[in-house]
Design a binder for these strands. Structure first.
Length: 486
RNA sequence: CGGGGCGUAGCUCAGCCAGGUUAGAGCGUUCGCUUUGGGAGCGAAAGGCCGGAAGUUCGAAUCUUCUCGCCCCGACCA
């Protein structure tokens, strides 16, 4: 054990169903994902939390690479004159920008924004790099931190500084830009569902929810246990708005000088907050195996005069590690039961218990975190020789099981209605995602929000028969999921 | 930005209303011994300028003002 673990008392975590907010904060802290820092609104990402982020990063990054993107890195500080070039963009972000106004002892002649997002910086650089249609497309992603001066913060869900990735691409045509935007939306949807085990609705945002400066914004929306939606990834078709603002011009094949079409898209550590809320239970975290920093933890059970289990655990852990599993041996001098609770809290998907009886029988007791204590199939005895195959199957099973539970919840809390009063009541009661035919009028959206506090999450194509808006009776233009949101 | 809570030991809190020896408890921590298959037992020990500042007072954790920060519910939110 290299990491000193301050033992935590599970008893201080309230039941999840009783108070989701209190449960959430307590779990984030007790599971040692984050600590509050001396800086207001900023958290420290501790090793266990960073481990989840690294796993997320690794697998999402692989998908970006597979779709032709490269990583790069751009500066943290953005001169004010650059940031303010795109009118809508600056208006949208101004309230949340942090500024550097002094260097050492000298005041700056031009203040520098700490990036809230990097369209301005990256657009400026693209303008220098792009001359011809042959230079396009440019497909770049960066893993970075950004700062947004938030008033109210919560671990992962909203912090002043946060980690994310932001992709920025430039294309020769509007069609290519839109294609890219939708391609990434699909990457996000597939990643959320297959890796984070978070079922989502993917679709277009309404005008009011659009990214400042975007022509169209798309997002994936997950549903949390309290019936509120969590925007978990966004993909923006920026059209030529940023191309024009940042002078990203190229000579096309037809000899004409044209502005590039750009996109931007991002997923942040907020998705970690989403999976914590979606999957956790009264015992703490349940991390989807694909994102678990530790897939299986070995707990040796030692008796006085019989410490064989420790060596056995280490041998087996080495073997599994060589086979590609992320494992850990917990040989701290603590009670086994104490360790079980600790690793339950921290969400490790599988626990392997080995005591004297098991050493004699050459078997291990394998317990799965996703099942309730005492469930018939929560613990099984597995021969040492079969550990690799059993663990592989078990991790896959847990991953699927977590997704299916969350998907069932989403489906059970999605309501389609064509009845106005039923629609409003569902929104008000924070029942989940309420699917209606919608007129797309901002005024209608504002009235719904005033009456229920729910907003549109994502919009999809109309279905046959959807002729009028369920909310106001005007002609319908889309179907929309309405929900209250984080 | 509005409303409501709260800052006292590493953690959870009591004490504050009605100011008065040396500020308490449980848990955790350290050491010793016994234990170890779902949060162990006994013994000993360490640990706090009561968030900060300024007042009132013979005397402030306690009263007053200001300030910093945290949590919850709204508003806002890319």
């Amino acid at each position: 054990m290299s990491e000193a673990l301050a033992p935590s008392a599970v008893k201080e975590i309230p039941p999840k169903a009783a108070d989701l907010s209190a449960w959430y904060t307590a779990v984030c802290l007790k599971a040692q994902l984050v600590s509050y820092s001396p800086v207001r609104g900023c958290v420290v990402l501790r090793p266990h939390g960073f481990g989840i982020w690294e796993a997320l990063q690794r697998q999402l990054d692989a998908r970006f690479k597979a779709t032709g993107h490269e990583n790069a890195y751009f500066p943290l500080l953005i001169p004010e004159s650059l940031l303010i070039r795109e009118a809508e963009h600056v208006e949208g972000f101004t309230p949340e920008v942090a500024w550097v106004t002094q260097g050492g002892t000298e005041p700056l002649t031009e203040r520098l924004a700490i990036r809230p997002t990097s369209e301005a910086m990256i657009g400026t650089m693209y303008a220098q790099w792009i001359e011809s249609y042959r230079d396009l497309p440019i497909l770049i992603n960066q893993w970075a931190n950004v700062v947004r001066w938030e008033k109210a913060t919560r671990p992962f869900l909203r912090t002043m500084e946060f980690l994310w990735q932001e992709g920025h691409t430039a294309h020769a045509t509007a069609a290519e830009g839109r294609e890219e935007t939708l391609k990434i939306l699909e990457v996000y949807r597939e990643f959320a569902e297959n890796v984070a085990a978070l079922p989502v609705y993917a679709g277009r945002k309404s005008a009011s929810e659009r990214f400042p400066g975007a022509v169209e914004t798309f997002s994936i929306e997950a549903l949390m246990p309290d019936g509120k939606a969590l925007q978990s990834g966004t993909s923006h078709d920026l059209g030529q708005n940023f191309g024009k603002a940042y002078d990203i011009k190229f000579v096309d094949a037809d000899g004409q000088i044209k502005y590039a079409y750009t996109t931007s898209w991002g997923v942040s550590w907020r998705m970690i907050g989403g999976l914590i809320m979606a999957h956790g239970d009264d015992r703490g975290l349940r991390i989807p195996p694909k994102l678990a920093p530790i897939e299986a933890v070995f707990v040796p059970i030692v008796r006085s005069g019989d410490e064989r289990a420790v060596a056995t655990c280490k041998e087996l852990a080495d073997r599994l590690s060589a086979a590609g599993f992320r494992v850990k041996v917990d040989d701290r001098d603590e009670q086994p039961g104490w360790k079980y609770s600790e690793w339950d809290l921290r969400g490790v998907p599988v626990r392997v218990e080995i005591g004297p009886r098991d050493v004699d029988a050459q078997t291990a007791v394998v317990a799965r975190r996703d099942r309730a204590k005492g469930d018939a199939d929560q613990r099984r005895s597995i021969p040492f020789a079969e550990l690799e195959s059993a663990l592989r199957a078990l991790l896959g099973d847990i991953q699927t099981s977590l997704f299916e539970q969350a998907q069932r919840f989403l489906h059970e809390h999605t309501y389609a209605t064509a009845d106005r009063s039923e629609f409003l009541e569902l929104c008000r009661s924070r029942a989940g995602m309420v699917d209606i035919a919608w007129c797309e009028r901002p005024q209608c959206e504002a009235e719904i929000k005033a009456a229920t506090t729910a907003t549109t999450r994502v919009l999809r194509d109309l279905q046959p028969g959807d002729t009028v808006c369920t909310a106001c009776g005007e002609p319908a233009k889309a179907r929309g999921y309405f929900a209250q949101s984080y």
